[in-house]
Design a binder for these strands. Sequence first.
DNA 1: CGCTATCTTGAATCCCTTCAAGTCGCGTGG
DNA 2: CCACGCGACTTGAAGGGATTCAAGATAGCG
Lengths: 242, 242
Amino acid sequence: MNFVFNERDGCGKCPIRHRAVCARCDEDELSVLEGMKSYKTIEQGEPIIWRGDDLHHISSVVSGIASLSRTLEDGRTQVVGLLLPSDFIGSPGRQTVDFDVTAVTDVTLCRFERRSFEKLVQDVPHISQRVMEMALDELSAAREWMVLLGRKTAREKIATFIEMVVRRDTVPIHAGQPHTLPLTREEIANFLGLTLETVSRQLSSMKKDGVLTFEDRRRFTVLDLAALQDATGDDADGGIIV
Amino acid sequence: MNFVFNERDGCGKCPIRHRAVCARCDEDELSVLEGMKSYKTIEQGEPIIWRGDDLHHISSVVSGIASLSRTLEDGRTQVVGLLLPSDFIGSPGRQTVDFDVTAVTDVTLCRFERRSFEKLVQDVPHISQRVMEMALDELSAAREWMVLLGRKTAREKIATFIEMVVRRDTVPIHAGQPHTLPLTREEIANFLGLTLETVSRQLSSMKKDGVLTFEDRRRFTVLDLAALQDATGDDADGGIIV
DNA sequence: CGCTATCTTGAATCCCTTCAAGTCGCGTGG
DNA sequence: CCACGCGACTTGAAGGGATTCAAGATAGCG
């Protein structure tokens, strides 16, 4: 079930072929992209690009997870988004990025030289249409997260985060296997607008309440999904999309 | 300097002609839009569309201000964005809206039937390109606001908000005229993730510190712009875009 | 002129943070 | 093999900033 990504395979075998900026492209358009792309791998913890840096490439995450974040002068940092496979880095039409981008795990990127990509946006409607779709989806997800940051309690924030991790975990839920937190306590805290101590306390509290169990510090199983969803503070139907 | 918007004028005289979804359109494309548009006015305080409602139109704000917000079951409300002239409501490709949209002032919309607009997105690259641009800008602004919601103190939030109001006020600053808060204390609170009492206290505090003076509850003048900008918590260069 | 919505201000409370100490797991090297 | 060190995490206690609850002031409007 898990594709092993191989750079030598063509776009046709790319794991994000049908979700990335190229999703709407036909074979002809894809072959143009094929000639333009280059891959780059960034190791866990390494910066991908800093806020304000000149943006030479527009990239898509092929594998791994990256974070978008901003740090205030005094060190407070807020993670404003996680970039999962198929998400893109950089905006056509902008010369710099507005946030720091960091590899949370090892990350492989599929990159296009920015100027060339901007030309593609002009010439290939399927590209601008797809980037539009993706940007609108991200926008909705970002606004959803604003509700969490502005109005939810620590308990609700943690529950929402866990529920999100469970919902979009690639590992099938029915298999009964534990899920894995992709972030450290500190990274979770910076994503939720909390301190790492509060994150730790809330996770312990949910464990004590029988909502979760932990196999180790990263791996957990949900014991009571209904309780978890109740604790998010959201309506039954409306969930985070991210 | 202030255009009086007149529905009978053509798109050529529209006050948002060069900023809205039609910005990149040429005369021919514009004449197509001309035949499709309809106007609607919503009074201050009235809902424009509720979260989850079927979205029959894609609209642009021509004049006035609208808010995007979400309310949790227990009444906590978070404003996730303000819609100013040229901003659009609704996403091509989505059948519903994810947030409540409310007229903060009297609002005039320029509307397109959603299905027709989606067809335009397919057929007219200038439209999808422009919507893409706008969505990417909104996305960046939303993430910027996430930093505020997640990490800034009440004082910093208020300073950032005031600074934003001042920066994009249509009334020229050099005229020395007072600026006007477009929102009530409660609306400001819901935008900043605070309570209305805290907003009031912080405004009083900034008044006491000689940063601002108030002519009345809505109209104010900045006395010390440097102090205001210092208080935002942002770097000197990096500002909110919204 | 008084009604009402909006806003201000005060006092008490609370949730989260801050500061601090200690635990756990793991790789490294003696 | 185990001591050691280190990063990640947990837990406790104290403190503080924002909220909550409450009372009163102000301004707009019929």
